[in-house]
């Protein structure tokens, strides 16, 4: 029993990492109908950014956090302006390959800047692990879960409550109609990229202390985030969130109860079964029929 609780704890921790990444991906999809395969690399940039700004330059944590997110979001904006905007009229599959190209490019750049060795980032707080029913919970895990909730909640409120957010939703529903009612869809596209890459960077910052950061950490994270977003249903914010947590918990339970070598396989088999039962994801917002 004690073990099961421990598995759940670690599952929820990794799950919330996947969740934040999935939320960023899903959010971008709902405003631009694009899946960004370089999202994982923006997460990596966030983690590497905090290494440089907080650990090496020793700036205070909140400032370092803000600077990193801003810098990465700026990169996201550049990416949108230079690559995606130029190729906007292309088929979705072409855009996907462009983002794949971008992910290789960003990884290459990060390798030159930070080198090939991984970095370690200290925990945000020096508290000891908390013990609940014999299972240990790391404070950083709590941070991650809380941050995931706050991020998803903020984006939710932003879409539901603010005018800009509503305008972005309008663009997602029907670009032409939104344009007719005076919404600048291009600005909304840039904004979506900024928010998406910004949340990616935030995810990277929060996971840096529990794992090691290196230039090639992004690919697998992006992949897991993509899976989570799919399971939840593309375009559904809380669906992506739930998908992330589910993926993390499945992996952890698979590793603990069955076999750690097969943990990814177990998670993927269950995810495929879910997809077969509800082909549009658990909380499908609309049928995603583009590619």
């Amino acid at each position: 029993m004690q073990e099961i609780i421990q598995y759940l704890f670690s599952g929820i921790t990794t799950g919330s990492i996947y969740a934040v990444i999935a939320v960023g991906l899903s959010m971008l999809y709902s405003s631009t109908e694009l899946i960004n395969f370089s999202h994982g690399e923006f997460v990596m940039l966030g983690a590497m950014g905090i290494v440089t700004i907080w650990v090496h330059l020793a700036l205070p944590l909140p400032l370092a956090f803000a600077l990193t997110v801003a810098a990465v979001a700026f990169m996201g904006m550049l990416f949108e302006r230079l690559a995606i905007r130029t190729a906007k009229k292309h088929q979705p599959i072409t855009l996907v390959i462009i983002t794949v190209g971008a992910s290789i490019l960003l990884r290459g750049v990060a390798m030159i800047i930070w080198g090939k060795d991984p970095f370690s980032v200290p925990q945000f707080s020096s508290h000891e692990s908390i013990e609940i029913a014999g299972a240990a919970l790391v404070p950083q895990s709590l941070f991650i879960v809380i941050a995931a909730f706050i991020l998803a909640g903020t984006i939710h409120l932003f879409f539901k409550q603010t005018l800009t957010g509503k305008a972005m939703v309008a663009c997602a529903v029907n670009k032409k109609a939104a344009w007719l009612s005076g919404i600048p869809s291009e600005t909304m596209g840039v904004l979506a990229f900024i928010i998406s890459t910004g949340t990616g960077a935030a995810a990277g910052i929060f996971i840096a202390p529990i794992t090691m950061s290196s230039y090639d950490m992004g690919t697998i994270l992006g992949l897991k985030g993509f899976c989570a977003a799919m399971i939840g249903g593309l375009g559904s914010l809380w669906g992506a969130f739930a998908g992330g947590i589910l993926l993390g918990v499945l992996e952890s339970l698979g590793a603990g109860l069955i076999s750690s070598g097969l943990k990814d396989a177990i998670a993927f088999i269950l995810l495929l079964l879910i997809l077969y039962i509800c082909p549009g994801g658990l909380f499908s917002a609309k049928v995603a029929k583009r590619f």
Binding site: L223, M230, A265, L272, L275, G281, V287, A288
Partner: peptide
């Protein structure tokens, strides 16, 4: 799997590829 479409098909085939690789 082929009953899925679009990105979901991508996800389905991706999962299959991962399982075989494992």
């Amino acid at each position: 799997t082929l009953k899925l479409s679009g990105y979901y098909l991508g996800m389905g085939t991706l999962g299959f590829g991962m399982i075989v690789n494992i």
